[in-house]
């Protein structure tokens, strides 16, 4: 699993305050904590409150790269902000994200090509999130077709089936899982799949349990990446165990320790 650390997001009070006041301490702290926990990417989101998202993203990228070379996932709906970030990334980044809308794809795909970035493609369009797997897959295919047009290989595309909170969009759960399963059939080589994990449990009780359970189920469907709380030990343990059951890692009694220490 490709683990994308979600914590550097202006929605969190400490990070939001850091971005607002130009205080690097909370950014540095969360960058290092997530890398230590095994994050493969760090997601950077300046948050909705930022007055100048372009400048804030550039600052965030620079600030994080002062303490780590971990690849970055640039999370914004403002593509100028993403481009400002891409220009500064030391390693190929992940663009988070673009929906299946032609105008937005035409803005994002050339810049992905230019900066050798991967892209999260959302299985939604201007009309919103389709209600079933077939609708999501059709949009995923649109994104893939556009990527090929702009000479970006499918394996650089991460399709996000879009999961909704289980307490309000319960009927979307099976559809999202089915989408993950079928996205693999859209092309050869296949695109990757990703979810924004914490969305599944918004405003639910037992959030960590819902996250863990969904993770295991989605991994069984072939999920390859998740934007998640990488500092949640139990969640990481679930990922490690699912990898064992899926025969991705060879079992041994210390497998949890091995997985947690894999980056060290």
């Amino acid at each position: 699993m490709i683990l994308i650390g979600e914590r550097i997001n202006g929605m969190f009070r400490d990070v939001g305050r850091g971005i607002g006041e130009g205080d690097k301490a909370p950014i540095h702290e969360w960058a290092l904590r997530q890398v230590k926990a095994g994050a493969d990417y760090l997601d950077l989101n300046v948050g909705p409150a930022s007055e100048n998202p372009v400048q804030a993203m550039a600052w965030l990228v620079d600030t994080v790269q002062e303490v780590t070379d971990c690849p970055l996932s640039l999370d914004s709906t403002n593509y100028d902000a993403i481009e400002a970030g891409l220009k500064r990334c030391k390693r190929p980044a992940l663009i988070n994200s673009v929906p299946a809308e032609r105008a937005k794809l035409e803005r994002v795909l050339p810049m992905a090509k230019q900066y050798r970035a991967s892209i999260i493609g959302l299985a939604m369009d201007a009309k919103g999130i389709p209600k079933d797997a077939d609708g999501r897959l059709a949009l995923a295919m649109e994104i893939l077709a556009a990527a090929m047009e702009f000479d970006i290989p499918p394996e650089d595309i991460f399709i996000d089936p879009l999961i909704l909170p289980v307490n309000v969009g319960q009927d979307h759960g099976p559809e999202a899982l089915e989408t993950i399963r079928q996205v693999k059939l859209l092309s050869n080589p296949a695109p990757k799949t990703v979810v924004g994990l914490s969305n599944i449990s918004q405003k639910c009780v037992n959030r960590p349990l819902v996250d863990r359970t969904f993770t295991a189920m989605a991994m069984a469907c072939g999920l390859e990446a998740a934007i998640m709380n990488v500092c949640d030990d139990e969640l990481i343990a679930t990922v490690a165990t699912a990898r064992i059951i899926l025969n991705k890692d060879i079992y041994c009694d210390s497998y949890l320790k091995v997985y947690k220490g894999r980056g060290l």
Partner: peptide
């Protein structure tokens, strides 16, 4: 036993 092989290397 591959599991024990791995475990012993860890130990």
């Amino acid at each position: 036993d591959i599991n024990i092989a791995k475990q012993l290397n860890i130990l």
